[in-house]
Simulated assay, not measured.
Amino acid sequence: MANKLAALIAVIISLLGSVSCQASYGYGYGGYGGGNPTPPPPSSYPPTSPRPPTYPPTTPSPPAAGLRVGYYDDKCSGAEAIVREAVRGADAGVKAGLVRMFFHDCFVRGCDASVLLKPTEANPQPEMLGIPNLSLRGFEVIDKAKAALEKKCPGIVSCTDILAFAGRDASYFLSSYAIDFKMPAGRYDGNVSLASETLANLPPPFADVKQLKDMFAAKGLDTVDMVVLSGAHSIGRSHCSSFSGRLPPSNTSDMDPTLAAKLKGDCVSPNGADNTVMQDYKTPNELDNQYYLNVLNHKVLFASDAALLKATDTMRLVYAAAASQKLWQYKFGEAMVKMGGIEVKTAANGEIRKMCGFVNKAY
């Protein structure tokens, strides 16, 4: 086992060397780093693993058509800084909500800020009222940034790009500045938003590996992207109803018994409320690779989290992320950029909203 662990570390160090050469698309890690993560204990590695688990070496995907880094430099100078300052002032829970909101927006009709549209007489059931979106947080941060940008550069910066920048910046702050990448921009805002489309497009907490792979593949994201983005479960809170089937007296869950007993107590509500708990019991407000250690130790909330150990390819990716925080941080930034290119709207089928909660024709 000692030889296997040594081989794993050697491969990861070699891979990280190639990653540092590929990172020209982002700000890099220059001095921020992620500390010295503790790899999972040797005894937890797969006993029949034919090779050390690693991420496949890749180069960053090019931005989606029409998107580019620095898009607003000559259109609204300082636009990205305005968004970052709005995010900076939010608490950790809201920052976590912004990362989640970016994901929930892009997975329904693509990255088009449709999740931000509010109910109107013409459309009383927009995405934000879909069951998976009822607990979304951070709308006020987007509105604050949009108001400042409309004052500075009216009609220039889309709500979709604001949300993409906010997801990036929240990741930056929650990772203690370690997840630091450039987000291409140039998206337009969509004008259709339907609550009925949320359940069909957003991966449920009870999904198995096949369902997760299929739902990510439908958005142009691969298995690596899926496992890497699952690391966002290192932050934020979850309603107990999302994992109640994994708690005692269930005899089918592989959740750590001590954690399961604690969660059972935390989820008890005298008035029947659907309590919330931290998704990461150990570092709840830090976007780090602790999530993957939690997966290996059976200390995660969702069946979809536990499912990552039930397929060889996803299991290997979990081990790689658990062993190297810096590698996972790089891959997370890469996956966020790739996700930000899903079904991007253009001037031909989108608009630049005056207010993020309403399409322009409402004015």
Rank of each mutant, 00 (worst) to 15 (best):
G89L: 11
Q329F: 08
N360G: 01
L263C: 11
G130E: 04
I179K: 12
L8E: 00
L327E: 12
G26M: 08
T58W: 02
W328D: 02
K151A: 15
N275G: 07
G357T: 00
A207Q: 13
F181Y: 07
E334K: 06
G155E: 03
S253I: 11
P52F: 00
Y330V: 12
V318A: 05
T346V: 04
P205T: 08
S324K: 06
D74Y: 15
P126R: 13
K210F: 03
Q279A: 07
R109I: 07
N3P: 02
R187Q: 12
K146H: 08
S250M: 09
V69M: 08
T120R: 12
I235T: 13
P205Y: 07
Q290A: 02
A207E: 14
M336Q: 15
A185P: 13
S18P: 07
A79W: 08
M215E: 02
D288V: 03
N349L: 09
A185R: 02
S234R: 04
S171Q: 00
R353F: 05
Y281F: 13
A200E: 03
A232G: 12
S43C: 11
L5F: 03
K95F: 10
P203G: 08
S49Y: 06
L136D: 15
D214H: 09
P52S: 06
K361T: 11
A207L: 13
C106I: 00
V19F: 02
G35I: 08
D74R: 15
V300G: 10
R68W: 04
A86I: 03
M183G: 06
P39K: 08
L67K: 02
G272Q: 05
S253V: 06
R137K: 12
S244E: 11
